[in-house]
Design a binder for these strands. Structure first.
Length: 516
DNA sequence: TGCGGAATGA
DNA sequence: TCATTCCGCA
């Protein structure tokens, strides 16, 4: 999360304040300790091998981050300026060498390393920036969110200065002491550093400050992401103090969640709780971008730990009615493998060539009863599966649609009041409408899905049975949300592995009027 | 240059 | 689970 937060900043310069405790083999380590000037602030867990779920040793992405935050390795690997979370391996051989050294694998080379990196594709930790040699992009949601159960966006939140970042600058960011900001603090000791990690406004960063004009990239999600940012930024520009939801009609609605303060059971491996404070505006940008990233980069359903019976806290209280909204969060099925993609590609190409457009598609997913059907949304071309993974957008759509809430409560229907149809929620421009959801108007009710639904079914028919089943299966049980994070305050119930959001009125990015 | 399958190891 | 290694393919 911290990483994410930092991404909210323009600057890349990082100061690694978080203590790092990377378990390294003696004689194999190359990076001992974070140094100032680097830029990203990563939580301790990021450097704890033991905190790397499923891993006993430092993971490659950890290592990459390490290198990225070290000035001395900037000539070897560095954040790509102007690109959100994107980094370039300037010296593949050297990086491989360093990695090999760290892992005590002298035979390591870039080929092998890159293979390891490629494994991250499916995990949504990384993705390749197509067309750019040795350039990859982190999916910070994947990396951070699961580890930062609580995200607290507050009007006066601070934002980190460095970071790959985010388009806006200036904010501050900090991690408030856990005990003070984590009402849901569970019994588990926090893994996160407490207290402000970075003084606001410090560390003017050099290399990341400016965002170059983005060049459209059809192939990867970058352009989409940027597009999303574009959509979001100008129209949603609001002062730090918040916005008037009534006046603002962002094309993309970022529903707010309120959280009644549900305690974390402490079941999550990421149970360490932490609060992050953001400048709402920046957060808005960031989160939106994240949403787009989720969409474009296909976050893995595994982004968030899942637990049976996971419930999403009722959304209510602490917020003006108009800001209250809840929507189902739904994860998309895991990425299909290349073969499947190709298969789908070929299948869909012939079957639904009209669908093949470079622009991202937002899959509208009727929740609840229509879940299964929604799972079988049309996939477009090769990226179909990936798009489907874009749970963020999917959720977004869901949000837009004022879907009901069975988000994390997989096993049971939501027990709290469901958000009303988003009749007032979205005012999406044509382009967005198309992209974000043909089903934007879809109601939780059983209204005919319309063309989208028809199309879904059509394509569903074209989908390999196996994939279909898989999607259904996963779709029913994989909560993930990106959109939610976009509201003032996002809290992740780390213990549950479920994010729940708490929006503060002033941190409103967008609101879905629930009463219309 | 990049991808991903497969076998294998830790 | 996360690589590492090897390899064929594009």
């Amino acid at each position: 999360m911290r990483l994410m937060m930092e991404m909210s900043n323009n600057s890349l310069s990082l100061s690694f304040t978080a203590s790092r405790r990377v378990k390294m083999k003696a004689g194999c380590s190359i990076v001992d300790k974070p140094e100032g000037g680097g830029g990203y602030h990563f939580p301790e867990w990021a450097y704890k091998t033991e905190s790397s779920p499923g891993s006993r040793q430092i993971q490659l992405w950890h290592f990459i981050l390490e290198l990225l935050q070290k000035e001395e390795f900037r000539h070897v690997i560095a954040w790509q300026q102007g690109e959100y979370g994107e980094f370039v391996i300037k010296d593949p051989d050297e990086v491989a060498r360093l990695w090999g050294r760290r892992k005590c694998k002298p035979q390591m080379n870039y080929d092998k390393l890159s293979r390891a990196l490629r494994y991250y594709y499916n995990k949504r930790i990384l993705h390749k920036t197509k067309g750019k040699r040795f350039t990859y992009k982190f999916n910070f949601n994947k990396l951070v969110m699961p580890n930062y159960p609580f995200i607290n966006i507050r009007p006066n939140g601070v934002v980190p200065q460095s970071a790959p970042p985010v388009p806006t600058a200036s904010s501050r960011f900090h991690f408030p002491p856990l005990d003070s900001h984590s009402p849901t603090e569970d019994a588990q000791p926090s893994r996160f550093p407490t207290g402000p990690l970075v003084p606001s406004g410090q560390e003017p960063l050099s290399d990341s400050g400016e965002r170059k004009p983005d060049v459209p990239e059809l192939e990867d999600g970058s352009s989409d992401w940027r597009r999303g940012m574009d959509l979001m930024a100008p129209r949603n520009a609001v002062g730090p103090g918040g916005i008037n939801p009534q006046k603002r009609k962002p094309e993309i609605m970022l529903p707010l969640f309120t959280r009644p303060g549900i305690p974390s059971p402490g079941l999550s491996p990421f149970a360490g709780s932490s609060c992050f404070s953001f400048n709402p505006e920046e957060m808005k940008h960031y989160l939106h971008s994240q949403a787009c990233s989720v969409f474009n980069y296909h976050l893995s359903p595994r982004t968030f730990p899942r637990y049976p019976g996971l419930m999403v806290p009722p959304l209510q209280c602490q917020m003006p009615p108009e800001e209250q909204t809840q929507f189902p969060i739904k994860l998309q099925p895991p990425p299909v493998g290349r073969k499947n993609r190709e298969r789908l590609e070929s299948t869909e190409e012939s079957a639904a060539p009209q669908l093949a457009t470079p622009s991202p598609r937002v899959k509208i997913e009727p929740m609840v009863d229509k879940e299964l059907e929604s799972e079988e949304l049309p996939a477009k071309g090769k990226d179909k599966a990936e798009r489907e993974e874009g749970s963020g957008m999917a959720m977004h759509n869901a949000t837009l649609e004022g879907e009901k809430g069975a988000i994390f409560a997989r096993p049971a229907a939501p027990s709290w009041p469901l958000a009303p149809p988003a009749s007032t929620q979205v005012n999406v421009p044509a382009e967005e409408s198309q992209e974000q959801g043909d089903g934007g108007g879809e109601k939780p009710s059983r209204e005919p899905v319309g063309e989208t639904g028809t199309q879904e079914k059509r394509e569903d028919a074209l989908m390999p049975p196996k994939l279909r089943l898989k999607r259904r299966w996963n779709g029913d049980r994989q909560p993930e949300s990106t959109e939610e994070r976009q509201n003032g305050k996002v809290h992740w119930n780390g213990a549950l592995g479920a994010p729940y959001l708490v929006a503060e009125p002033k941190a409103v990015i967008a609101t879905a009027t629930s009463d219309t």
